[in-house]
Structures are given as C-alpha cells and as structure tokens.
Computed example of a mutant assay.
Amino acid sequence: MTVHSAVQLAFDGSTIDGSLFTSITNFARDTTWLNTPMEVWTNLGLGVFAILMLMGWWNARRRDTTAMTLALAAPVCVATAFAVAEVAKKIVAEVRPCRSLPHDYFVAACPAPSDYAFPSGHTTTAAATVAALFLLDRRLSAIAAIFAVLEGFTRVYVGAHYPHDVLGAAIIALPVAFLTSLALRRYATGLIDSLSRGVLRPLLVASTGAHAAY
C-alpha cells in the first residue's frame, strides 16, 4: 500500500472535536508572543518528567527496598505505556490535524503522513510519569500532574494534536503505568533487594546503615 492510499484510509479526527481544536489554534494565532515558548516547552519539557523520576530514585536511596523498586520501575512504566500507545496509534491511524484542517493556524511543522495523531506520544509520557510516581512519592506525582496538564495543552496549542488525542493518551497511560508499577513492586522487589547487597549498593542505598522505614 502506498503512503498516499494509507493516508486516504486513515481516520479523520476533526469530526470529533475539530471546532475546539480550531478555537485553541486561533488562540495560538492571537498570542504569537507565546508561540516560541510553547513550541520549546512541548519538546524540551519532557525533560522535566525525567528529572522528577531521577528525584524519585535519589530520595528512594534513603528509604527501603520497596521504594527503590518503585523508583527503578518508573521509567519501565513510562516505556510500557508508550509502547501500548504506539500500538494504538498504528491501529487507529488518525491523520494529523495539519492534514485534516490545513487552513488552521499551526505553530509546529506538519509531520510525515505516516506519523499519526492518536494518542499523543508526548502526553502519554507525561501522564505515565504521573502514574509511575504515584505509589513512590505523591508529592512528585502531583508536580508531574501539573506539568502533564501543561504538556497536553501545548500539544494542542502548537497544532500537533486534537484535544481527544491528549485525553486518549491520558486514558491509556495512567492505568497502564500504574498497573505496571504495581506488578513490578510485587515481583521485582526481591531482585532489587539482592542487587542492593552487591556492587550496585551505592546506587540503591544512600548509606551503609539500615534502610529507613517506608
């Protein structure tokens, strides 16, 4: 199948919330002074979620094995949610807004035709981080949630995704990441406990003393 015919068969998401998408991109058109900051944040802002996971790991070194298991599980949870979202993206095959609504205002460049829209990969990463940190550190999870909302909004603001792409990403990522975190806490704690007694101990335990209470 050629790329052209594949695009013709792809799903047109503008029929769901195209008017809301246009309202937001019209706001982007009227706030051009925000365009560059929003475009920079929508990509580089993902680094914030990596930093929050690193903070979770650093703090877990002063806690117990269960906390460290959850900390090390966080990036696995995010990767798992992202993989599930990528499968959904191929199945739904929703064309990007820039192809369905070419006359709207777009801050971001239009991706290749085979780069589908639903669900938003950036939002998947953000929402998965929220869920991955929930059992480890509620404060870090709450901070991640605030940045996740901002990340989702910027994806629509720059014209990369419809609102339902962002919502769908959260609906997929939150339970997948949370359940993965639960599973790894249950089944990987023993492995982490063994590793913490070996050469990796400095990375897993802050001191030579006993673990702090969870």
Rank of each mutant, 00 (worst) to 15 (best):
A126V: 10
M53R: 03
P202E: 14
V7Q: 15
H4F: 11
N26I: 00
G159E: 04
L136H: 09
A160N: 07
T22K: 12
E86V: 00
I171S: 01
A160R: 10
Y162A: 03
P175I: 02
A173I: 01
D193P: 06
A142V: 09
A60N: 01
G168K: 04
L133D: 11
A177C: 13
M68V: 00
S196K: 00
D115K: 15
R96T: 05
S194K: 13
S19K: 12
S207D: 12
Y214C: 14
A60Q: 01
L150K: 08
R29A: 15
S141T: 07
F153E: 09
F147S: 02
T22L: 13
A127V: 10
Y116V: 11
A206W: 03
G152A: 07
L9E: 15
L150W: 10
Y105W: 09
L184Q: 05
F147N: 05
I91R: 03
A60M: 02
A128F: 03
D193W: 13
D137C: 13
T32R: 14
Y214Q: 15
T129D: 14
G168E: 03
H211F: 14
C77H: 05
L184Y: 02
C98Q: 09
A28W: 07
L200V: 08
V92D: 05
V84K: 03
S14C: 06
S19D: 14
T124P: 12
A213L: 14
F147D: 04
E86W: 00
V3M: 12
L101Y: 00
G47T: 08
G209L: 07
A93G: 11
R61E: 02
K90W: 01
A170P: 02
S196L: 06
A10L: 10
V40G: 06
Q8L: 15
I91W: 05
G168N: 05
A144G: 08
D137A: 11
